[in-house]
Design a protein around this nucleic acid. Structure first.
Ligand SMILES: [Mn+2]
Ligand SMILES: [Mn+2]
Ligand SMILES: [Zn+2]
Ligand SMILES: [Zn+2]
Lengths: 135, 135
DNA sequence: GCAGTATTTAGAATTGTTCTAAACTTCTTG
DNA sequence: CAAGAAGTTTAGAACAATTCTAAATACTGC
């Protein structure tokens, strides 16, 4: 109904990943409600609160595999910690500096004009806009 | 002549920092030629090649102090490593993904229109544009 | 079910960075 | 310029985030 089929085993298989109990549990937390920005530690705390605890190494493995499979994207906004973003469509971010909170905003109303051409021998891969704000 | 007075002791004093031998050596490497993007490790290797080796802890201390004093800005583009940028004016970056190289481009020809207003209770602090490119 | 392969896990290891506390420098003041 | 006070440097330990290792366990296709 919302385009997000809740059949997580099938979605994982489609991404070339075996639907293990751990990956299904993590996928549920990540994808069953709206878009999210999580850190590995944060997701680990969440999944531990579940009937199916998962090791921190597995959380890191799964996040990296989901990212490599295109199910997540990685966002780097602060030194020392990676965020993983369940929103893989085009969009940009507000970053609230003191708390480390990330908020999406759609990129379709944002126009970026006048970007120079990429340096010789390189191809554009992605344009990230991070709007840093303070309280 | 170029606005970059080479009197590093004076520049450091003006920033509220004692012009120690180590800080002067680092300031020379950072500011005596054009704009640079350095990592702590990279700058440490450079300064060690000098007659005046400096401990890695001091390189970190100095980079953080220079940043806090407004002499440098910190750029976060890749997980696990901070870059320090001697260009403190308005500008944006190309990030060459496989090698981790950063290149400036001026922001005055770049127009960003249609940015949403910051979330309630926050004030805009800075807008970073990172153009990620691949070889 | 079994074999074969992928995955999970605890714990060790690695990496980037910060902390600690003792030694050393720089600055101030007389 | 001699102290003394305050700030800085340093080696090494500590820390935080992440990855690695290798042994145990779980999936998969037959
Ligand atoms: Mn990674
Ligand atoms: Mn820092
Ligand atoms: Zn997002
Ligand atoms: Zn720059």
């Amino acid at each position: 109904m919302n385009g997000n089929s809740p059949d997580f085993p099938a979605r994982l298989r489609a991404a070339g990943l075996r639907p293990t109990r751990q990956r299904v549990a993590l996928a549920r937390l990540l994808f069953e409600s709206g878009h999210r920005h999580v850190t590995a530690e944060g997701l680990h705390v969440e999944v531990k609160a579940t009937r199916m605890p998962v090791s921190l190494a597995t959380v890191y493995n799964a996040l990296n595999q989901f990212r490599d499979a295109g199910l997540l994207r990685e966002v780097v906004v602060a030194p020392g910690r990676s965020y993983f973003d369940t929103n893989i469509g085009h969009h940009h971010h507000f970053f609230i500096e003191p708390d480390g909170e990330l908020h999406d905003f759609p990129s379709d109303k944002v126009t970026i004009a006048g970007l120079p051409t990429p340096p010789k021998g390189t191809r554009l891969s992605r344009v990230d806009v991070i709007v840093r704000v303070r309280r």
